[in-house]
Design a protein around this nucleic acid. Structure first.
Length: 903
RNA sequence: GGACACAUAGCUCAGUUGGUUAGAGCGCACGGUUCACAUCCGUGAGGUCGUAGGUUCGAAUCCUAUUGUGUCCACCA
């Protein structure tokens, strides 16, 4: 093979698209096409990005994490599948498109355009974003199987949604109920509890009485809702008020009808807070509604409508007023009637719609719910039980079906959330989404399921049937994602082969939205878990720790970073310093640093390819010849073992740091420099093989992180063979790993430690040179005195070249040269001969300082070793190590003292 | 109010079942036209690991308290 020339600097732009095409064309993204015998599967469902917009850095992080894991597992010989897809994001997408239409002058998109026309606009928008998103995923290098591309709103996924709905409907788990829900006036739709964002605002709290003779004062921040009060709750142990429990008072506060206020007991009322009593407004408060459910006879009076204005029930003075107008009016009325007691400022949280941005009103209305507390017919457990089982005892108490969450702390958070879980409101009053497959017969009142347009009522055969207007919460479809993407409810081969999935990653912010619902859906519909392992990651923040956001204008476009630094660099910079479950910061300098590393790897390859007479793949470790060879190959094995262990634990950042350090510092800065010296002298040795072997291993190790550049370099060496389907280094030599793993905590003390001494010696000489201001080109005279003469002797060429030494004098116990500066390391005193007289003052000062540091260190060691308890209790290896350290330090101190005397 | 996380060099962060003279990248200082790389090379300065106790032969690491920061949950009327 002829010599291979590479460009001086790596240009990601020139290679990335071509490499991705090559991967796609190979078909290897599809597990069914992977070469070799791969008995074990590794399946991941991609969290589908919302088609609300294009990808941001958070998506880039997710793609990096997923693809690193997937490529690693593929190299380890698994049958890997990453299923890609997008999410129609019901409310979010419709809200976005409506906003844009409003900007274009269509004030009321729903009324002006109508259902079909508006849906068409949203569909166009979604399709456009979808195609951008898919091309961005490719740009990230993500190795997903495009032949299995899915969309939460496409035909197969809609079938799955309807099927689940149908089953739950039949099982009575989905019901229509009159409940207080979160209502967005602006969006004219319900929102689930987790679609709210809370904001702290200053607001007035008003204390008043319903009437002069009413015995209890109450306080509220929402006076206008008091027109719909039906009870006052007091603590049953509160002696001031408990005598009234059960009594009814009729009061006229100006509502359409006089209010009948019942005094009820509720142990959640804090007698010491405020007036010690709570005015109960069942229609406009989640909590009050729950009290109403326990005391139905108190009644419920809605006074606020879906348009955010007061209803007739509020009274003719209030009907049609906005909430704020009604509030002012009611407060004025209280004052005029001498019922007003006081007004105070308080800090209060108000819930706002995450999607529409307006303050959420609590309104009672008919909605569809999933009952999480009801026994599932034939299963003797509830959906809540299922959600809990899957992460604790295992699905159906099967220990092989326990979902493991990394990091562990989210396990408890999840369980806590399950405990507080209420029935899930799944209907949304928007048009973009899966329409609820339920039909009503206006003739006989029958309510029935149909997943296609129904023509007549199955009961009375009347044709006066209509479908429910509402659509389903988007999480209803994403909950089915791991199996709907594999073809369920049909019994597909994919479902059989690839479900449950193996591994899942997601940000903690959607743990409840998504993970919980996937577990609910899968355990219910498939009687199985959706995945075995979940890796939770944090969110990316700007350098100052703030979130990236449109309103702050601090967003970074991943495509711009790729354009500037390359995808490999972006991936590496996102992963380095990112740990499971924790937020990480991202800024451009990180990408630049990663780009520098990518370029380093390129130049290492460039050098090796040009230095080799016969550039080729060397796949078995060559025999080491020199000390440096031994050191390198040993170290390489240790690093492979360490990186493998970290990757197995999903410690992506740690593994990358191990590899980074080895590649740049050990291999490039030391071994390659040594190689330049040794290859001159030693002909017919394994040098070239060692370089090519190490490069080959490094390309594999780096492939998960840096897929493009590694594949590109591999291509130069291997021609037809593709790196992405090669095998992970050392995969079969398991015994070696066990051995290395057991040693991993202690430094490897063996022959190759000698090379570390050589490195120390060279560094010490360089240090002497720098301290004495000797120009880098100038050759110097060095005398080394110490017991390791033989070692220095054999490594003399290396020492001379790397430390730029002209004359190297070695002796076991020689006389120290005149006019020299000294440095002491383990087993050697190093003297640098100076041209003139050494600057005695400066040298003494430096030595004195070093003596002080060494003495302190030595003292610490002595105290430790003189402590009988330490010697008795600490492991022998630790004690031995301390003794060794002591000996070295003592020797060093002696030499330093001797030297300082001479000045 | 409840829970959790974080606090280590100027900045951003590693440090995995307790044993290193506590590390990296960036930044900084000094010096470099060594034929792979200035997207580089060499040398160096810089930290009593938030604070106070405790457990232990031994603590950045475990426990308790405390301060600060952040996140989530609940929400008070």
């Amino acid at each position: 093979m002829p010599k291979i020339e590479l460009d001086k600097a790596y240009d990601a732009k020139l290679v990335e698209d071509g490499i991705y095409r090559k991967w796609e064309e190979s078909g290897y993204f599809n597990p069914d096409n992977l070469p070799g015998n791969r008995p074990e599967k590794f399946v991941v469902s991609m969290p589908p990005p919302n088609v609300t917009g294009v990808l941001h850095l958070g998506h880039a992080l997710e793609n990096s994490i997923m693809d690193i894991e997937l490529r690693y597992q593929r190299l380890k010989g698994k049958r890997t599948l990453l299923v890609p897809g997008t999410d129609h994001a019901a409310v979010a997408t419709q809200a976005r498109v409506e906003d844009e239409l409003k900007k274009q002058g269509i004030k009321q998109p729903r009324q002006e355009l109508g259902r079909e026309e508006l849906l068409k606009k949203i569909r166009e928008y979604a399709e456009e974003k979808k195609s951008v998103i898919l091309s961005q995923i490719k740009k990230m290098g993500t190795s997903c199987d495009w032949s299995r591309l899915a969309y939460t709103f496409d035909e197969p996924r809609s079938k799955a949604v309807n099927e689940i709905f149908h089953r739950m409907f039949k099982d009575g788990l989905i019901y229509r109920g009159y409940r207080v829900v979160n209502w967005s006036v602006k969006g004219q739709s319900t929102c689930s509890d987790d679609e709210l964002v809370y904001e702290t605002v200053k607001t007035s709290v008003y204390t008043f009485k319903y009437s002069q003779d009413f015995p209890i004062a109450i306080a509220t921040t929402r006076p206008e809702t008091k027109l719909g009060d039906t009870a006052v709750a007091v603590n049953p142990d509160d002696n001031r008020y408990n005598k009234y429990i059960g009594q009814k008072f009729t009061v006229d506060v100006g509502a359409a009808k006089p209010l009948i206020i019942t005094i009820i007991a509720d142990k959640n009322v804090d007698a010491n807070y405020g007036t010690g009593a709570v005015g109960v407004t069942p229609a406009h408060s989640q909590v009050d509604f729950e009290m109403y459910e326990r005391n139905k006879d108190i009644g419920i009076i809605p006074v606020i409508g879906r348009d955010g204005r007061m209803l007739p029930a509020a009274g003719k003075d209030y009907e049609g007023l906005t909430i704020l107008q009604a509030r002012e009016k009611f407060v004025a009325w209280l004052k005029a009637n001498d019922l007003f007691i006081k007004e105070e400022e308080v800090e209060h949280n108000v819930g706002k719609s995450d999607r529409f941005g307006d303050v959420i009103e609590a309104l009672p209305m008919e909605q569809w719910f999933v009952d999480v507390k009801k026994q599932i017919p034939g299963r003797n457990k509830t959906l809540k039980d299922l959600m809990r089982e899957a992460v604790t005892v295992g699905h159906n108490h099967d220990k092989n079906k326990i979902i493991k969450i990394t990091p562990e702390r989210f396990h408890d958070t999840y369980l806590h959330w399950i405990d507080n879980l209420r029935d899930w409101c799944i209907s949304r009053q928007i048009w973009w989404g899966h329409r609820i497959p339920v039909w009503y017969c206006d003739n006989c009142g029958e309510i029935f399921y149909s997943d296609e347009p129904a023509e007549k009522c199955p009961k009375c055969k009347s044709v006066k049937v209509r479908q429910d207007e509402d659509t389903l919460d988007t999480w209803f479809s994403s909950g089915a994602w791991t199996f709907s993407t594999l073809g369920w409810p049909q019994k597909t081969a994919d479902l059989e082969k690839y479900h449950p999935t193996t591994w899942m990653q997601m940000g903690y912010e959607i743990l409840f939205f998504w993970m919980a619902r996937m577990i609910l859906m899968t355990t219910y519909a498939l009687d199985d878990i959706p995945f075995k392992d979940v890796y939770i990651h944090g969110i990316l923040r700007a350098k100052d720790g703030r979130k990236f956001s449109k309103s702050l204008g601090n967003g970074l476009d991943p495509l711009e970073i790729i354009e500037k630094y390359g995808t490999d660099a972006l991936r590496l910079s996102l992963i380095k310093g990112t740990t499971a479950g924790n937020d990480a910061r991202f800024y451009e300098e990180k990408a630049a640093a990663a780009r520098n590393f990518v370029n380093k790897l390129w130049n290492i390859s460039r050098y090796i390819l040009s230095a080799a007479d016969n550039p080729r793949l060397v796949e078995t470790a060559p025999e080491p010849v020199t000390l440096a060879d031994k050191w390198l190959l040993n170290k390489l094995n240790v690093k492979i073992a360490e990186a493998t262990r970290q990757l197995d634990n999903c410690e992506f950042s740690l593994a990358s740091e191990i590899l980074y350090d080895f590649t740049w510092s050990d291999f490039a800065d030391w071994y390659l420099e040594v190689y330049k010296v040794e290859s001159q002298k030693l002909k017919d040795n394994n040098k070239e093989e060692i370089l090519l072997y190490t490069l080959q291993v490094l390309l594999k190790l780096w492939h998960p992180y840096l897929p493009f550049i590694t594949e590109e370099i591999w291509d130069k060496l291997a021609g037809e063979r593709m790196l992405m389907v090669e095998s992970w280094p050392g995969g079969k030599e398991t015994k070696l790993w066990d051995k290395i793993k057991s040693l991993a905590r202690l430094p490897v003390i063996s022959g190759d430690n000698d090379f570390e001494l050589v490195k120390d010696l060279i560094t010490a000489i360089r240090n002497l040179r720098a301290e004495n201001k000797i120009e880098p080109v100038k050759l110097v005279e060095i005398t080394v005195i110490g017991a390791k003469t033989e070692l220095w002797e054999t490594q003399a060429e290396i020492i001379k070249h790397l430390a730029r030494v002209e004359k190297l004098t070695l002796s076991a116990s020689g006389v120290k040269p005149e006019n020299s500066a000294i440095k002491v390391i383990e087993g050697a005193e190093i003297y640098l001969t100076l041209a003139g007289l050494a600057d005695a003052g400066k040298e003494t000062e430096r030595l004195t300082k070093e003596i002080a540091v060494t003495e302190k260190y030595l003292n610490g060691l002595r105290v430790k070793l003189e402590n009988g308890e330490f010697v008795k209790n600490a492991p022998k290896a630790v004690v031995e190590k301390e003794k060794e350290k002591l000996a070295v330090a003592e020797e060093k101190l002696a030499k330093l003292r001797e030297q300082v005397k001479d000045f």
